[in-house]
Simulated assay, not measured.
Amino acid sequence: MSELTHFNEQGRAKMVDVSGKNDTVRTARAKTAVLLNEAIYQQIKDGSNKKGDVFAVAQVAGIMAAKNTAQIIPMCHPLALSGVDIEFEWNVDEANAHYEVLLYATVKTKGPTGVEMEALTAASAAALTIYDMCKAAGKEMVIGPTMLLGKTGGKSGDYERA
């Protein structure tokens, strides 16, 4: 198990000093899901949601969230991101009334620290935006699970969820 690095000698939280680390290309990919009802599924599919294009707004929200992760996660470093993308995929089983949208966030940078938190934040914000835009058609939506699928670059090397 690795040593926790976010605490100073007094046991108080600190932001880790990454000034001595090499800049490398780093990527991270995260996933979450939103389970919804048939009415919400139909609204998104046919573009009839009164608030607009649900996926377009969620896409922008996810990108903005990745860019602003350091503003909401206290120990994250502000990063110059090279790229952020959000992808949506339907997982639908109409016979069993299962309507779910899968969200994938991919973030890339070249720097001294990784972008896992940015990818997780992007996926989460995009999912929350779907909830916000669709809550009038049903508040029983379920978000999650949210997870890191993989990351590349850095001292600890690559990671891929089994």
Rank of each mutant, 00 (worst) to 15 (best):
K45T: 14
S19V: 06
K31Y: 12
K50T: 13
H6C: 12
T129M: 11
G114V: 08
K108Q: 15
P78M: 13
D158Y: 00
G20A: 10
F7A: 14
N22I: 05
E3W: 08
S124Y: 00
Q71D: 15
V101F: 07
P74S: 12
K151L: 15
A65L: 06
S82L: 08
C134S: 01
G138D: 03
G11T: 12
T32I: 06
L81A: 07
F7N: 04
V115R: 08
V92F: 03
Y159L: 11
M141W: 00
E9P: 01
I73Q: 05
A28G: 12
A66K: 06
R29V: 15
N22V: 07
T106Q: 09
E3G: 08
G138N: 03
K31I: 15
A65Q: 07
E140V: 03
I63F: 02
V16L: 11
A70Y: 11
E140L: 12
T24V: 11
K45P: 03
T129P: 00
H98K: 13
R29W: 01
A105T: 06
A66L: 09
T32S: 08
R12G: 07
T146C: 10
S82F: 01
S2A: 13
A58V: 02
D53E: 10
N49P: 00
T152Q: 01
T113C: 11
A70H: 14
K155F: 09
A80Y: 04
K139A: 14
K139F: 02
G47R: 10
E116D: 15
K51W: 02
K50D: 09
K31G: 06
Y131R: 04
T146L: 10
T121A: 10
G11R: 08
N37A: 11
A126V: 08
I130Q: 00
G11K: 09
C134Q: 02
P74K: 13
P74Q: 12
I73N: 07
T109L: 15
A39N: 06
